[in-house]
């Protein structure tokens, strides 16, 4: 069954066509890669799906809910979590607090509960802390629980960001260039981590990546975007040989000659 269905998604920035008639059906448990040259509209697709932009046209259906008009936190509450191309952790909060706050959409209390420390507050806070502690252990971040993210190395920050998304216990995890800026060793770790997360949490994973080793190793299916349009999709093997993909990435041999 499709966990996420995108139909006819189109988005314009002013006159610029960023995404055009994008269709996608993401199956439960799948690992899908979204690739394409710079500026192809990959992150825009993510932003549209996660509710940060509202599309000019098209439908997005997530776990049976129409989410096109929802605000980002409402989409998140339905079980979608993502990371960002440029790390966006909350830098004046500790790693532990980062993991707690991302569970905001699961809070079982409001302002009154906060003030009067209601039963709902106490159970909810306990549950949040427990989840955060689990994530710390799972991602071996325990040692950094009380550090501020900005003081930690880049690879670690990426891991924390994935942890922050996982703390929401999402059904769909969207990773925006998780390997960007990593050294080869860190990339190997990342590949291992993502595969492991998928098995452990039974997640559906959708990732944008330029790093071909990551994409070819993890993804079961790949969608290629160029100028906002899907130009190819298939297994890593098919994509590797698709002439349109090679053309999109390397340019048209004829036009270079001309």
């Amino acid at each position: 069954m499709a966990i996420l269905e995108v139909r006819n998604l189109t988005h314009f920035f002013g006159g610029l066509r960023a995404v055009f008639k994008f269709d996608l059906a993401l199956q439960e448990g799948e690992v899908l890669g979204l690739i394409g040259p710079n500026g192809a509209g990959k992150t825009t697709v993510f932003n549209l799906v996660s509710g940060f932009y509202h599309p000019t046209e098209g439908d997005i259906c997530f776990r049976g809910n129409e989410i096109v008009r929802l605000r980002p936190h409402e989409v998140t509450a339905l079980g979608m979590a993502r990371t960002f191309q440029n790390i966006r952790l909350w830098n004046t909060l500790t790693v532990f607090e980062n993991l707690c706050i991302s569970q905001h959409s699961k809070l079982g209390y409001g302002i009154l509960g906060t003030i009067f420390r209601s039963r709902g507050f106490r159970t909810s806070e306990r549950c949040i802390r427990k989840t955060a502690e689990e994530i710390l252990d799972i991602l071996s971040l325990r040692h950094y629980a009380n550090e501020y993210p900005k003081n930690l190395p880049y690879g670690l920050q990426r891991r924390i960001e994935i942890g922050r998304a996982l703390a929401m216990r999402p059904h769909l995890l969207m990773l925006d260039e998780p390997a960007a800026g990593m050294n080869p060793g860190e990339v190997d770790q990342l590949i291992e981590l993502i595969t492991w997360i998928r098995d452990k949490f039974q997640l559906t994973i959708w990732l944008i990546e330029h790093h071909m080793r990551v994409v070819m190793n993890i993804c079961e299916r790949i969608v290629v975007l160029d100028f906002g349009e899907t130009i190819a999709q298939g297994t890593p093997e098919e994509i590797r040989q698709d002439p349109r993909v090679i053309q999109a990435y390397l340019g048209d041999a004829d036009s270079i000659d001309a």
């Binding site: 996660s50 509710g51 940060f52 605000r71 980002p72 936190h73 998140t76 509450a77 979590a81 993502r82 960002f84 966006r88 952790l89 909350w90 830098n91 004046t92 909060l93 607090e97 706050i101 991302s102 569970q103 905001h104 959409s105 699961k106 922050r164 998304a165 929401m168």
Partner: peptide
């Protein structure tokens, strides 16, 4: 505090 540090991330993270 999450809003102060990064409002967009806060909104997207729930």
């Amino acid at each position: 505090v999450a809003v102060r540090d990064d409002e967009i991330a806060a909104n997207i993270m729930g």
